[in-house]
């Protein structure tokens, strides 16, 4: 068993905890049902957290959801900017997720080529 260096994890968690205490101008929901996790949802989440960390973006909250019923299109995320319709992105890779963070979260521009649909239930 590889023993995790939990002191190092604790240091990283301090940064992460500041992210989760942030206000909410944007919400990122990573679909993490069994299908999403099997398709790589955790890597997508990790890439997005890294983007928020690197750009010192504090006004974004992260969330997870269960299977959305589109297992074959996983990994999926939903991006919701305050006052705007949510956008579902499908068939993601870490590179696509980083581009979505940069263009949609930071600059407010939807990455249409990766989007499945715009508009559904709003939570923000």
């Amino acid at each position: 068993m590889r023993f995790e260096d939990l002191d190092k994890i604790t240091d990283r968690m301090r940064k992460v905890m500041s992210l989760r205490e942030g206000s909410s101008q944007a919400k990122i929901t990573v679909h993490m049902g069994t299908c999403g996790l099997s398709a790589g949802a955790r890597k997508i989440m990790k890439a997005l957290i890294q983007c928020a960390d690197e750009t010192a973006t504090k006004d974004v909250i992260f969330s997870t959801s269960a299977c959305a019923g589109l297992c074959s299109r996983e990994p999926m995320i939903t991006i919701e900017l305050a006052g705007q319709a949510p956008v579902k992105y499908v068939d993601l890779t870490e590179e696509k997720a980083k581009r979505i963070f940069s263009e949609h979260i930071v600059n407010g521009k939807i990455v249409a080529e990766y989007a499945l649909a715009i508009g559904s239930e709003q939570t923000l």
Partner: peptide, 20 residues
């Protein structure tokens, strides 16, 4: 590490204890 990072980041109202 990534599992804990995901859990802590995505679930604001939940505390997590991990012991190995």
């Amino acid at each position: 590490t990534a599992t804990l990072e995901t859990l802590v980041t995505a679930h604001r109202g939940v505390d997590f204890v991990y012991e190995q």
